[in-house]
Design a protein around this nucleic acid. Sequence first.
DNA 1: TTATCATTTTCGTAATCGTCTAAATGATAA
DNA 2: TTATCATTTAGACGATTACGAAAATGATAA
Lengths: 126, 126
Amino acid sequence: MPATKIISSPVCHVTCFEQEKVARIKAELAKEEQLLPQLAELYKLLGNVTRLKILLALAHGELCVCDVSHVLGLTIAATSHQLKLLRSQGWLTMRNDGKMVYYRVHNESLLKALKGDFCLLEERLA
Amino acid sequence: MPATKIISSPVCHVTCFEQEKVARIKAELAKEEQLLPQLAELYKLLGNVTRLKILLALAHGELCVCDVSHVLGLTIAATSHQLKLLRSQGWLTMRNDGKMVYYRVHNESLLKALKGDFCLLEERLA
DNA sequence: TTATCATTTTCGTAATCGTCTAAATGATAA
DNA sequence: TTATCATTTAGACGATTACGAAAATGATAA
């Protein structure tokens, strides 16, 4: 009976063709659903050339805000803003030294993941 | 002389502290600069829970637009829009069968990369 | 204290994004 | 042909985003 009943989405009024498959997939997604927003958040963070450049610039050691801004060719304010974003999500840490603030990558695994995704693109080009 | 000359960014008027390091990093970035926009584009695409769900839903085989929309709980129109986006960037392919249109993942490597990044998050939680 | 300097924060703006509704395709069937 | 159905496209709307300009912190030095 449940297999023959035609269900409709609450949003659209189109019938569902493969109910069981859809139900199974929804159940599977439900397990990952908790982490998906976090994963999307990470991808959003990485989906910006400025922030990617920051991560690559800091890949080999810390830099002060001013130097990062020179690398980027952006305002100090804009640079600080992006650094804060990356820090607030736990991917950078900062260190105070007098008036200066130095930022560095907090989690090396992030750089590895980045490299992996970079390879995905290169592979596709070939 | 080049090491002692103080340069200023054309954008902001702040002095640059580690000129040589900054110059070296800029040179390094220049090599990757061509692919960075594409990488950011990919990340932007993945930085959305709806599209992540689509990829995971299609991970085990093709689905018609209607069924995908049921999985997502979204309008057919919204679903079609996101499917088109993923297809236009080469990550999905479609197949016509009468009135129906079936979508599937075009590049398995994308799913692997996705899984890798997923692990990065899980690792961080531990 | 006051002045200076690196950085952060606030605010405004233009652009992009994700979704909806409604109209338009495009294919099948009567 | 006309009717129906799955999908796509167009247009509109609210939400988010990235940046610059300018004001506000916070630390150092005179």
